[in-house]
Design a protein around this nucleic acid. Structure first.
Length: 430
DNA sequence: TATTATT
């Protein structure tokens, strides 16, 4: 056996490891030295988002030898913390190594005082526990729930039978919940919801499936422009990707989740009702004000990428983008008291759904640039929308982008008409 | 009451 063949082979019973809690600035070459000490590496791959290429903070690692994997897991799992991380590194067999993810339980309605050990004690009688983690916030306080992974589905099922609803723990608002953890799809949906609610796009109207899919497509088209334009919101970009994934799910799955949780949707502040600060901070829509394209014409992907990561993943509180948008618009209004509406920056939108307000069109056009105003025209007598409106951006390119993406965009039975606002005469028939 | 991630 030649050396080449020898070193490129892995043992038939080699274990693929999942590595978690990796700083996002570490690539394969940086990780290699950390893991090589336990044996020859067969394959090491940092996991990246398939659309954005974003480092996901984890990796897969296969050693040539099964023994190396066991050694690495033993020495590293939960044992040390990589620079910049708050939690210890995770080294354990990848999900793909153990088929049947039906042995992991979600435990809800724990008391805030229960520790990993307490929970483990509670579940121990039902089988071998592979993992047991109480979920905690950044400050270490319990979220009142935990994950418990058994070695087998039967053990997990036994625990459910015995424990679910069996008692109410001190500090919990109802009886103990023990059920199988969400599937990957369900988890995905949960995440989407979070993103959606952060963006404030979950309004009764946007929940409409047809609109979701079409809007998603429009947003995805804009993905392609990320590399060429510094004006597209990183938040929206990430959201678009998430929404794309959401759109790939079947309607019943979405209904199941949206119905559960759309009870309390936040109402954005009315523009008129929100006081304009005397000297607003120089923040613009989506907090990436007027980033000019680099002089050399190269894409500003690096900045955007970083912004995107921070906007979406940052532990620090993220400002509600919609709130930011309003703040940005106010700032503009304060800076340009007279109507700031250079030609080419303003778009006209017709065939809006009746229920669309300023807030909805603002949300709808946020992804395409810095919106400095968004106005639906309302009939004075009835206070009903006239189903058309205007959106102004701070630059013509955003306006063009919006037109390209949204003109013909189908909502219900209608298609939006989106075009540049006619320079002077607003009364001309269209 | 849903994690920090699973190609």
């Amino acid at each position: 056996v030649s050396e080449y063949v020898y070193f490129s082979m892995k043992e038939p019973d080699a274990i693929k490891l999942f590595i978690g809690q990796i700083p996002r600035n570490l690539e394969e070459k940086d990780l290699k030295p950390i893991f090589e000490q336990f044996g020859k590496i067969y394959e090491l791959t940092v996991i990246k988002d398939k659309y954005t290429g974003m480092h996901k903070g984890c990796a897969f690692l296969t050693y040539c030898a099964r023994e190396s994997a066991l050694k690495a897991q033993n020495a590293l799992h939960e044992q040390k913390t990589l620079p910049g991380m708050n939690r210890p590194i995770q080294v354990k067999p990848a999900d793909s190594e153990s088929r049947g993810e039906d042995r992991k339980l979600f435990v809800g309605m724990l008391g805030k005082q229960q520790t990993d050990a307490d929970v483990r004690k509670m579940f121990e009688p039902f089988g071998s526990i592979e993992e047991c983690t109480v979920l905690r916030g950044p400050d270490g306080t319990s979220k009142g729930c935990a994950f418990v992974k058994f070695q087998s589905n039967a053990e997990a099922q036994a625990a459910i039978n015995a424990l679910h609803g069996s008692r109410t723990l001190p500090g919990a608002s109802s009886s103990l919940v023990v059920k199988f953890a969400d599937s990957e799809k369900e988890r995905g949906l949960r995440r989407m919801q979070q993103v959606a609610s952060q963006l404030g796009v979950i309004s009764p109207m946007t929940l409409h499936l047809g609109a979701y899919n079409a809007y998603t497509q429009a947003l995805m088209q804009q993905q392609a422009l990320v590399a060429q334009s510094a004006y597209l919101s990183p938040v929206a970009t990430v959201a678009a990707v998430q929404m794309q994934q959401l759109a790939a799910l079947n309607p019943s799955e979405i209904n199941a989740l949206t119905l559960k949780s759309s009870a309390g949707t936040s109402t954005p502040p009315s523009i008129a009702a929100t006081p304009v600060p005397a000297l607003p901070p120089p923040i613009a829509v989506n907090s990436y004000p007027s980033v000019p394209a680099p002089p050399n014409g190269q894409p500003a992907t690096e900045t955007l990428y970083t912004n995107g990561v921070h906007a979406y993943q940052a532990q620090s509180p993220v400002l509600d983008p919609l709130q930011q948008a309003y703040t940005g618009m106010q700032h503009y209004t304060a800076t340009y008291p007279a109507a700031y509406s250079p030609e080419g920056c303003n778009i006209f939108i017709y065939h809006l759904p009746q229920e669309f307000t300023d807030s909805e069109i603002l949300q709808m056009f946020l992804p395409f640039g810095n919106v400095i105003s968004a106005k639906v025209f309302v009939d004075r007598a009835t206070n009903q929308s006239k189903c058309f409106g205007f959106v102004s951006f701070d630059n013509p390119s955003s306006a063009q982008t919006a037109i390209q993406a949204m003109n013909g965009f189908q909502i219900g039975m209608k298609r939006l008409k989106v075009q540049l606002k006619r320079p002077k005469d607003a009364n001309r028939p269209y």
